[in-house]
């Protein structure tokens, strides 16, 4: 455990001193703020003409009822979609930067085993992603309060918060294959490319009805982004997602341990 704690401390210092942490937090603050603006415009149609293009776009969107229920649904869909890319970006940075900055060689022949370093990276990625999810949800609540969305009740808020948490965790679990591609590809671009590719493929897979069996489509299905909701998901879907995560974890650990590092 001492190895892990040392490695977590090292990873935390790298993250804390980087601009990336603050950039991702800003991005996750911005997203609910923009959703709030759109909701506000839909709720107050008289503003749409004053806001130009934003107003026009907002007027075109069909959110359904402009209330907390709809707003929470949107936040859940956002974390399933944007989270997939955002968390992949975080993972790419944590793992890929060691290769891009050529610092990985300093981590390979130390008394702290490589496995501890990889695990600590996963732990800080998970904490970072949970923090971003929390930021998105918390700012979402504040923005919803500011624009005075109707229909607040704890019966809506708590299940929505639970749903948001589960979707976030499912999305975070899908970071492990991204870490593998960051290590295998020795940099940032391959894992980000991989994440974008999975998002595109998820759209096509969804069209042919195989979404419940494609790991990267599962969080969105769980959020109800497809309109059908989590009813499509069976135990097999969760097993597939967990297995994907485990393969990503084992693959990354094995890559760091057994692949030639040059």
């Amino acid at each position: 455990m001492k190895n892990i704690f040392s490695a977590i401390w090292a990873e935390s210092l790298k993250i804390y001193r980087s601009k990336i942490l603050w950039i991702t937090i800003l991005a996750f603050v911005f997203i609910p703020f923009m959703i709030g603006v759109l909701m506000f415009v839909v709720k107050n149609p008289e503003f749409s003409s004053k806001l130009g293009m934003i107003g026009t776009k907002a007027a075109m969107l069909r959110f359904g009822n402009v209330d907390w229920q709809t707003y929470f649904g949107l936040l859940n869909q956002i974390i399933a979609g944007v989270g997939l890319i955002g968390f992949a970006f975080v993972t790419s940075w944590v793992f890929g930067r060691e290769y891009s900055d050529r610092t990985v060689k300093d981590l390979l022949a130390l008394p702290t085993p490589r496995s501890s370093i990889v695990l600590s990276k996963f732990i800080v990625v998970a904490i970072w992603c949970v923090l971003l999810s929390f930021v998105l949800f918390a700012i979402g609540l504040i923005v919803g309060g500011i624009i005075k969305l109707p229909g607040w009740s704890s019966e809506i808020a708590f299940p929505s918060a639970y749903l948001f948490m589960v979707i976030s965790l499912l999305t975070i679990l899908l970071c492990t294959p991204v870490a593998f591609f960051a290590s295998y590809g020795r940099g940032y671009l391959p894992p980000i490319g991989f994440a974008i590719l999975t998002l595109i493929i998820a759209q096509f897979i969804g069209l042919v009805g195989l979404g419940p069996y494609f790991p990267w489509a599962i969080p969105a299905l769980y959020s109800g982004a497809t309109g059908v909701g989590s009813a499509q998901l069976g135990i097999a879907s969760y097993i597939i997602l967990f297995l994907t995560s485990i393969f990503g974890l084992i693959g990354t650990l094995a890559w760091w341990r057994y692949a030639d590092q040059y």
Binding site: K2, S6, A7, W9, R17, D106, P111, T112, I117
Partner: peptide
Amino acid sequence: PELTVWGNLEIIRRLRR
């Protein structure tokens, strides 16, 4: 790059236990 000389060495000190 974003860490100081001290920060870079402190990381190695910790990882070297």
